[in-house]
Design a protein around this nucleic acid. Structure first.
Length: 782
DNA sequence: GAGCACTGC
């Protein structure tokens, strides 16, 4: 047996066997005692031992796709059917793992249990006219939740311990019930805060709980998310985003108004949740009256317990149907093609139920949908109807909504999704999941300050989360387009927490403004790379937010008031001096919606690009964004005609409104530069002087790191190539690209950051390398 | 001449 290493389409190494006889069968790791997972003795290289081992394992599993019984029944028939539709050599051999991802519901019991379960988390709530009728059944639902029998024990545990880790799968009822148990059992409690990683979750859970408690949303039960505070003086139970609670530390560093804080979905390890861990652990020491509950879905609870000084773990069973896991016998070099084939295989051989496919991004999703539709067209009436639907965050809302419409009778729905379907949204009716095992992940290089978005194998935790999506309605099946060996040996146990792969500029600013000076020794559950902290501190110092002792300056304090990255914050503060805050606020808002302003559907690329050209003004992308915002009609119609994403525009408007509302507090007057772009560009320079690049042969060189970078082809300055420019961000895709660039004069750098440029890169390198050009620049200055 | 996953303040 020889293995050839082939480079996958995304540059990742996939192991591909030339002869497809690699039958490795491993049990899936989910909820399985460790002894069942001792697989290390099995070598990848195939020898005699290996062969025997394989044979043995094969006896215990079905030979190929589908259940053994089904195959025995009509194997011949089936094969004939396959050949009509799929070429024999393109079919994928799946092998069943010996162990199923355990569910807590059997299919029979579940079918009634399911409705109870779904209605609990559904976003559609009964109307008031039905209220009385529903009230009774709602209480029944509450009593039927897995958490219900644990109520008294749980309350006792909370009473006894200050910090408690709660392990509960989705559907256990922990998010909706625990706060209610607390309010009911101790009526005198002050506020209970419960954090969620996502806005919709905070809103919908709050709405649900308000209904269960028969109170009006915003009274006793409310929610608080950015742009929307739905609470009042009466509110005792507040659901909120994790970032919101983090911001509350600024006004109330000891969280005095809370008696209970619940950090929900802790296993997701969002940046904000991770920071909250450190802060809350700290305040819990001098606030013995504060109860802290850390709720997590996975086996990671040991780590939480360990971090919170051996806090006890309280386990609540979840509610889910079993999911059979299948792996490919051999690795698939082209997972896109493999997805298409798998969908068709399921469609032909498996009983009714919708399919969910996980891909990494828009481009792949579009390609996959096209391939599927093309094959269905060719097959015509040979197969039942297949409804193919894409879903990703940047897809316009009306197209997103289609995935929720019911599947027509006799047809099968295929939803081709990004990670959005992993946590953020749940699609009813999914029975089959196809998981190629990849996702796009952001990483951050603190040496260069460069972000990249790279296709990487996802973690085992993520793969299990995806598989779980097949077990929400009934028992399901998950087809993994990789071998069981790869699952065990090539995938990480968990995803690297966000705090370790992101820029920490605003986190550092926030912690500094909370008076935490020694960040290197801050109690992080998983500390970020040292260089990331150092770079963040260095940049804050360069911006003037920190003094040489690392203490917050007055400027830094004002910067921390704004919920944006430090450079953006500095830019806004600088706009005061240049009398252009009106325009700079707009630019800041537009920059913060991150490149999703222009809609560019694949089939209308030319139209979309022409529409974009209409907004181009001299000076650079920041000014183009300003122009879009100024011209924007704020209507869906206008956005549609101009290939602008309505959602992004609305968000930019929300951000701008919020920022403008904060201008009073940081004492910046909102005034316009009346069409003069120089002050605007100077304000941008004042915030982003750290991001200067100079034209050099073949591209640009960053002034800071002498790194070769390029203007992104979508930039309005792509053709112009000005001598000096400022970039908003640096991203690595196929090359090192500067995205959102604006032309500046080098003299401005000396004006806005004399402390930085007089002594550093600009003067030094210019004098050494290009003394004449330096002189020229000064002439230009006048 | 590219091609941006997902959240959040």
């Amino acid at each position: 047996m020889s293995h050839t290493d082939t480079v996958g389409r995304n540059g990742y190494l996939l192991y591909c066997t030339q002869v497809q006889t690699l039958y490795l069968l491993f049990p899936d790791g989910q909820e399985v005692p460790q002894k069942d997972l001792e697989l290390e003795e099995t070598p990848m290289e195939l020898g005699g031992e290996q062969g025997r081992w394989e044979e043995e394992r094969l006896k215990t599993a079905s030979l190929s796709f589908g259940a053994k019984k089904e195959r025995e029944q009509g194997m011949k028939q089936e094969q004939e059917k396959y050949q009509l539709i799929l070429e024999e050599d393109e079919m994928i051999d799946f092998v069943s793992s010996a162990i199923t991802m355990k569910g807590t519901l059997s299919e029979k019991v579940g079918s009634t249990g399911f409705f109870l379960f779904v209605s609990c988390f559904s976003f559609c709530f009964p109307t008031l006219s039905q209220a009385e009728l529903k009230k009774q059944s709602m209480q029944e639902v509450r009593r039927s939740l897995p958490i219900f029998p644990y109520r008294e024990d749980l309350l006792a545990a909370i009473h006894e311990h200050q910090i408690l880790v709660i392990e509960g799968e989705t559907g256990s009822g922990k998010t909706t019930q625990i706060p209610q148990y607390l309010t009911a059992s101790c009526p005198g409690t002050r506020n209970i805060g419960c954090t969620q990683p996502r806005r919709v979750a905070a809103m919908s859970v709050a709405a649900r709980v308000a209904q269960e408690m028969s109170v009006k949303l915003g009274n006793e039960v409310g929610y608080s998310i950015r742009f929307e505070d739905c609470t009042s003086e009466r509110t005792v139970l507040k659901y909120m985003t994790d970032g919101m609670l983090l911001r509350e530390f600024l006004t109330e560093p000891d969280l005095a108004s809370y008696s209970v804080v619940i950090i929900d979905e802790a296993h997701e390890r969002t940046l904000h949740t991770d920071i909250l861990f450190g802060l809350i652990k700290d305040i819990a020491r001098f606030r013995p009256d504060l109860k802290v509950l850390v709720a997590s879905a996975t086996l990671d609870t040991e780590r939480f317990s360990c971090f919170f000084d051996e806090a006890p773990v309280f386990r609540i069973p979840g509610r889910r149907f079993p999911v059979d896991i299948y792996y490919t016998k051999a690795p698939e070099a082209d997972y896109l093609e493999a997805c298409v084939v798998s969908v068709l295989q399921i469609h032909i051989t498996q009983s009714p139920g919708d399919i969910l496919v996980f891909l990494t991004g828009q481009e792949e999703i579009e390609a996959c949908c096209e391939m599927l539709q093309e094959r269905c067209r060719r097959l015509g009436s040979k197969i039942a109807e297949l409804v193919v639907l894409p879903i990703y965050a940047n897809l316009p809302s009306d197209m997103q909504a289609k995935i929720f419409s019911p599947t027509p009778p006799g047809a099968r729905k295929v939803v081709v999704a990004t990670n959005i379907a992993e946590t953020s949204l749940t699609i009813d009716g999914i029975i089959y999941v196809i998981d190629p095992g990849f996702c796009k992940q952001k990483s951050y290089n603190a040496r260069t300050g460069m972000e990249s978005l790279i296709v990487t194998p996802c973690s085992r935790a993520s793969a299990n989360q995806r598989a779980g999506r097949a077990g929400r309605v009934a028992a399901g099946k998950c087809f993994r387009l990789y071998t069981a060996w790869a699952f065990k040996h090539e995938m990480e146990e968990t995803t690297v927490p966000e705090i370790q792969r992101t820029n920490l500029g605003n986190v550092v600013l926030l912690l500094k403004s909370l008076g935490i000076n020694d960040l290197i020794h801050f109690d992080f559950m998983d500390p970020p790379p040292h260089e990331t902290l150092v770079l963040a501190l260095e940049q804050l110092y360069a911006l003037g937010a920190l003094n040489h002792l690392g203490e917050l300056t007055k400027l830094g304090r004002r910067m921390a008031e704004l919920p944006v990255d430090p450079m953006l914050s500095k830019m806004i503060l600088a706009s005061e001096q240049y009398k252009c805050s009106e325009e700079v606020l707009t630019i800041a808002a537009m920059l913060s919606v991150n490149n999703s302003i222009f809609y560019r559907p694949k089939d209308k690329v030319v139209h979309a690009d022409n529409a974009r050209m209409n907004f181009v003004v001299p000076g650079g992308d920041h000014l183009v964004l300003l122009n879009v915002y100024t011209q924007s009609g704020y209507s869906t119609q206008w956005c549609y005609e101009n290939f602008i994403q309505f959602r992004s525009m609305r968000r930019a408007r929300d951000v701008r409104d919020q920022l403008e509302g904060l201008m009073d507090r940081i004492e910046v007057e909102v005034v316009s530069s009346q069409g003069d772009s120089v002050p605007i560009r100077k304000a941008v320079t004042a915030g982003y002087f750290y991001h200067t690049a100079r034209l050099s042969k073949g591209g640009y060189k960053t002034v800071k790191h002498q790194q070769t970078v390029y203007i992104h082809p979508n930039s309005s300055l792509f053709e112009e190539q000005p001598r000096w420019l400022i970039y908003h961000e640096l991203v690595f895709t196929t090359k090192e690209f500067m995205r959102q660039v604006i032309e500046i004069e080098s003299g401005w750098l000396l004006e806005v950051a004399p402390h930085y440029y007089k002594s550093k890169e600009l003067e030094d390198s210019s004098n050494k390398k290009m003394p004449r050009k330096q002189g020229k620049t000064k002439e230009e200055l006048g």
